[in-house]
Design a protein around this nucleic acid. Sequence first.
DNA 1: TAATGTAACTGGTAGTGACCACATTACCAG
DNA 2: CTGGTAATGTGGTCACTACCAGTTACATTA
Lengths: 247, 247
Amino acid sequence: MSRTIDPYNAVPKYYQLASILRQKIEDGEWQPRSAIPSERQLEVLYHISRTTIREAIDSLVQQGYLYREHGRGTFVSPRKLQKGWMELTSFSEDLLKRGLQPGQIIRNLSQVIPPISVLKRLELAPGSAVFCIERVRLADGTPIGLQTSYLALGPDQLITLEELEASGSLYRILNEKFNIHPSEADETLEVTLATPQEAALLNIPTGAPLLLSERVLFSQERRPIEYVKILYRGDRYQYYTHLKRRD
Amino acid sequence: MSRTIDPYNAVPKYYQLASILRQKIEDGEWQPRSAIPSERQLEVLYHISRTTIREAIDSLVQQGYLYREHGRGTFVSPRKLQKGWMELTSFSEDLLKRGLQPGQIIRNLSQVIPPISVLKRLELAPGSAVFCIERVRLADGTPIGLQTSYLALGPDQLITLEELEASGSLYRILNEKFNIHPSEADETLEVTLATPQEAALLNIPTGAPLLLSERVLFSQERRPIEYVKILYRGDRYQYYTHLKRRD
DNA sequence: TAATGTAACTGGTAGTGACCACATTACCAG
DNA sequence: CTGGTAATGTGGTCACTACCAGTTACATTA
């Protein structure tokens, strides 16, 4: 990473500065709770205007790297670890962060007409066909969850078995192949008990407790992209989330 | 709500404008997916600079009310419903949103020395005393969860039984009495089975599945304020969360 | 008709300059 | 020693200006 601002670079200056500051925080060069240089000092240090400085700092405050105190300064947040979007939504990224080897068995991959409850969530007309993927998810080789995804893609937007097996992550395919970058999701979690079929697939006794997650993924323009239902083994999985106040 | 900007008002203009715009969205005056006036138009309409306009729009975009499309305009998000911070963290607010009557039985309220695992999460020295509240939570009169809170308050900051019973919400007391306004929280969820004691309190069979939530609340300066553990009845409770990408 | 270019929008980035609100410190008067 | 006060440094707000970068509609051209 560069240590100075390149005015001829295509990436915006405020973004360049934010990267530099983030780097100093992550490298530990700036200790938690210590003050970073004032906005007027940064103005001199990097030869950019305070407008741009504030834009960079704003984004880092938003992301939880820094916090401001009026009249005192801007300080480094003592955050424990950085949880990103991908780790919150993608099964494989999630497991990797926990130090487990993600794996999957793809049981089905086709165009189907889903239950109306699913179509409703995807804001599609009754009878619409969507792309469906059913997978058994593995952690270090043992089954840990059953995942069923319904994707609101165009009829020409297909995903092949080979692609999914090669990439491992559905979200990577959405990003790279279809240029879809999800930005928000609604999720519910509840407890259920394993049916005989589910129990067999997960290699647990019938009636064992499961964590049921249902999620609807939205694109930038808040168009529903995916409805996904995951049944986690209750004895092997812990769900993590980070809450943040909006105002 | 005012329909114009008052330059002599103590509240910032960008905030006043954001309120006006938010109102138009919530009132349905501006329909979802429709374009709002351009930034140059708003400049004329409200007699404020584009800098300020953008600041107002930025905050509404951040909060999910609007989304921008470069070269096209700024549009109203078709959000289903507004989930706020309180609904995500406060048990009573949460239940009210679901149309259930919140209630509680306070079982204990005292200064205690908690397990070291709790002290670690609160970033306190071993042997420190904290304020502890144990409650049975009710929804429409029936037990739905067991809640144990550990609060990192000063030794002089006490909460009485009367206060808690009158207010009903611990967070309201933190806000109003101690001027503590939590801003972020880390939460984990997992499945457990009810012990005989828990089963008795929740009026369910021993071994019934429970949803276990553990949460650490942080203040604005990321100081841990509260560690709270809640055991929800698996058959009566569904957890909701909204995920949002950071960058 | 179809392709293309262009003008007129939109939001995005950036600089300058000013003043306000709050916190801290040093200093002075009591 | 105590309490007030002024100076100074911090982030917060706001205006005005300029130009860049996508999008769209429409007139022009081949």
